[in-house]
Design a protein around this nucleic acid. Structure first.
Length: 105
DNA sequence: GCTTTGACACTAA
DNA sequence: CTTAGTGCCAAAG
């Protein structure tokens, strides 16, 4: 059988997202950086492809400047999900982003 | 296989 | 603080 050790860019993004625990967030920039690339936009593209909103916590990904960013179901819904997980948001922006930012190891 | 599209990032004014 | 412009990369058309 064929072992697919070479995952697609999108899959690698999802894989990283799965590492993010509840109450933590990351940025498109951090993900791209963790993958050793600068494809910030491609990361967002991967989310827009709409993975499984249930399996992949794509709502925990925000912009590097702290803004919530976009979401398939609407930014408002994304904010709501983050608030539920304990992330403080004000004016569509995450406060103390570095405090919630998840560090990929 | 080139062109377009983006749920972005960064800098300058 | 906002606006405008440029750069970046992968996937889809």
């Amino acid at each position: 059988m064929k072992s697919n050790t070479c995952k697609s860019f999108d899959e690698r993004c999802y894989d990283l997202l799965l590492q993010i625990p509840k109450g933590k967030v990351t940025t498109y920039r951090e993900i791209a950086h963790a993958l050793g690339t600068k494809a910030y936009r491609a990361v967002g593209q991967a989310m827009n492809r709409n993975p499984n909103l249930v399996t992949v916590p794509c709502h925990r990904v925000v912009k590097s400047n702290g803004e919530v960013g976009g979401y398939v179901q609407g930014e408002n819904e994304k904010i709501r999900l983050l608030l539920i997980e304990g992330v403080v948001i004000r004016k569509h922006k995450v406060l103390n982003l570095e405090k919630y930012l998840y560090q990929f190891r």
